[in-house]
Design a protein around this nucleic acid. Structure first.
Length: 302
DNA sequence: TAGATACCTTATAG
DNA sequence: ACTATAAGGTATC
């Protein structure tokens, strides 16, 4: 086993690990104490979280926790660089916050979860996770991804235990729709299977969205079955580094109606442009994620 | 091209 | 207990 740690004070704006991995951005981390998303106060400031990643073709396991002003990690490999990427440790939070509008609700959201970072997850697991997110609660989306790992994931040994990686496109393409429905995916089951087939056969590659202009990248992703504009924006924001993407979910739509009514243009594309502008442009997605987590957590009644 | 509707399943509110 | 409602929407007509 390899170990290491990262000094939190060296990161501009610090980090709130729990907010980062339990805010509904990533569904690829598990809490070792099994208490993900519990509302009770102080339920996990220093909990261990683990995930798997494929690095240079090899499947690796890493676990991490935040304690005594440090991010401490243990892994099957030297995980420092991977964690830097996965957890957005290079993002300059104070500079990003400067780009947000000086509105009360925005300030409240940033203050409530200061240190939360936008994750940068591998794209295929993110694609599947957010296909599953349609009309679903955060805790149940996470449960579905756990179930997919358990049923279809490749096992990896680490520290005396067995961990399971997120399934490959091939594994999910080979799964039957019935088997996926057995995991409570509901009508999302055929979407996941069809999208996995598209990736496995090479019919389409989500990686091809990288480098495209924002709206072209979003259009590229909507070719996958079960991926509309909102899910495409989630993939761009949480996997492909488009920090300006603002997924128009139920929460941000409520926020728009309440605080930015001029931004409601009646259709997704135009409303998207307007709210991205209102939330500061290049990092609008950061502000959206703080608002989402703050409002969803009951931080302010709407 | 805009608008309405069906869709799996479960947790929570009433 | 039992029903209605909503949950980070999308596909289809």
């Amino acid at each position: 086993m390899q170990r290491g740690s990262i000094d939190v004070t060296s990161l501009p704006g610090g980090i709130d690990l729990q907010a980062t991995v339990e805010s509904g951005q990533s569904y690829l981390w598990d809490r070792e104490d099994g208490r993900m998303y519990e509302r009770t106060a102080a339920s996990g400031g220093d909990a261990w979280y683990w995930t798997t990643v494929r690095v240079d073709g090899d499947l690796q396991v890493v676990r991490i926790r935040q304690t005594d002003g440090r991010l401490v990690w243990e892994a099957t490999f030297d995980a420092a660089d991977v964690l830097h990427t996965l957890l957005g440790l290079g993002d300059d939070l104070p500079a990003i916050r400067e780009t947000a509008p000086p509105d009360a609700v925005v300030d409240e959201a940033y203050d409530a979860y200061w240190g939360m970072r936008i994750v940068c997850d591998p794209v295929f697991p993110t694609l599947v996770s957010f296909i599953c997110s349609a009309q679903m609660r955060v805790a149940r989306i996470h449960g579905m991804q756990q179930a997919l790992r358990r049923e279809f994931g490749e096992p990896v040994a680490f520290d005396g235990g067995t961990y399971r990686a997120f399934p490959t496109p091939e594994a999910l393409a080979d799964a039957s729709e019935a088997a996926l429905r057995d995991l409570s995916l509901g009508y999302r089951a055929p979407y996941v299977k069809r999208t996995a087939e598209m990736v496995a056969t090479g019919e389409a590659d989500p990686e091809d969205a990288r480098g495209l202009a924002y709206e072209d990248a979003r259009d590229h992703l909507t070719q996958f079955v079960g991926v509309g504009e909102k899910v495409a924006d989630c993939i761009l924001l949480f996997s492909l580094g488009y920090l300006g993407a603002v997924p128009l979910d139920t929460w941000i739509r409520t926020t728009i109606a309440e605080f930015y009514p001029d931004c409601d243009r009646g259709n997704y594309a135009d409303t998207s442009r307007a709210i991205r502008e209102a939330l500061g442009g290049a990092y609008a997605g950061y502000t959206q994620t703080y608002l989402f987590h703050y409002l969803r957590s009951g931080g302010r009644e709407l």
